[in-house]
């Protein structure tokens, strides 16, 4: 991308300040961080328990082995951590900005408003979960394959990034609808509930749900595809689809925000 260096540096410096202040705020609530950590451990233990309940009945979910299923769970854990670290703390505020009118301040800053709204704060309590997700993916893949060749590793990293972008775009578009509907928080709860389906490989679902999770809600691209990449089972076509989907989702989220702002800036009094 041909981008002048100075603005990029300014955005980076801004980001440092954003997250520096965010960390300072959160230090006031250490207890919250501890609870977050315990909840994370509990959730992971519960997910493992559930997988084991299938396993002990001799069920291979969608034909995936125990270790392969753990790779999917690792990808889910990573994205769940990302949600707690960046998506939830930032995007849930858009509603407040609209309700309290402080979106005006954001719009009057000489900085991209989507950048501000998406990355304004960071919640470090979710970082261990992201790390744990990656470790689980690598550990389980290694046990499944015996070794981790660099090519699938790279492919998995890229596709996990694509998954993060898709997830972000979904959340952002939903959160941006708060320009029209004040209470969109419940809608994001629906999204969050539906995305828990990503804990398991998409082939473990009946045909109807599999279609739904691939075409309507891209759950398959969030967790199953990166896991397949790491396990070296991915077809190039799927990888390409995932990348195109990520680019498309990002473009759509920007266009949608511009569209939503047109309503905000012409309708508010």
């Amino acid at each position: 991308m041909a981008m002048p260096v100075a603005p990029v540096l300014r955005y980076l410096r801004t980001l440092r300040r954003f997250w520096g202040t965010a960390l300072a705020t959160q230090l006031e609530y250490q207890l919250n961080a501890l609870i977050e950590l315990l909840a994370m451990a509990g959730n992971l233990a519960g997910s493992l328990l559930l997988l084991w309940l299938f396993h002990r009945q001799g069920v291979a979910l969608g034909g995936w082995s125990w270790n392969a299923v753990l790779v999917v769970l690792g990808a889910y854990t990573f994205l769940d951590g990302l949600t707690s670290t960046l998506l939830r703390p930032n995007l849930s505020r858009i509603v407040n900005h609209v309700q309290e009118g402080t979106l005006d301040f954001v719009l009057l800053k000489p900085i991209d408003s989507q950048f501000w709204l998406s990355l304004r704060t960071i919640s470090p309590a979710g970082l261990p979960e992201m790390g744990l997700g990656v470790v689980l993916m690598l550990w389980a893949a290694r046990r499944e394959l015996g070794a981790l060749p660099p090519a699938p590793l790279l492919a998995a990293a890229v596709l996990l990034l694509a998954a993060a972008v898709i997830l972000y775009a979904l959340w952002f578009v939903l959160a941006a609808t708060s320009i029209w509907f004040v209470k969109t928080w419940n809608a994001t709860e629906v999204l969050r509930a539906a995305l828990t389906a990503g804990r398991y490989p998409v082939s473990a679902y009946p045909a109807g749900l599999r279609l739904l999770f691939t075409l309507v809600l891209p759950v398959a691209f969030l967790t199953t595809v990166p896991a397949e990449a790491l396990l070296g089972r991915l077809t190039p076509l799927t990888a390409l689809t995932s990348l195109l989907l990520a680019c498309g989702a990002l473009v759509i989220s920007r266009a949608f925000w511009a569209f939503a702002l047109r309503f905000y800036t012409s309708a508010s009094s």
């Binding site: 801004t14 300040r17 520096g20 705020t25 402080t102 800053k109």
Partner: peptide, 23 residues
């Protein structure tokens, strides 16, 4: 009736954020 300062932090932190934003 609206404020841009970060509620839980000293004003100095908000000022530093603005300094970065405005370059």
């Amino acid at each position: 009736q609206k404020q841009q300062l970060i509620w839980d932090l000293p004003p100095l932190d908000s000022l530093r954020v603005n300094a970065a934003v405005y370059g």
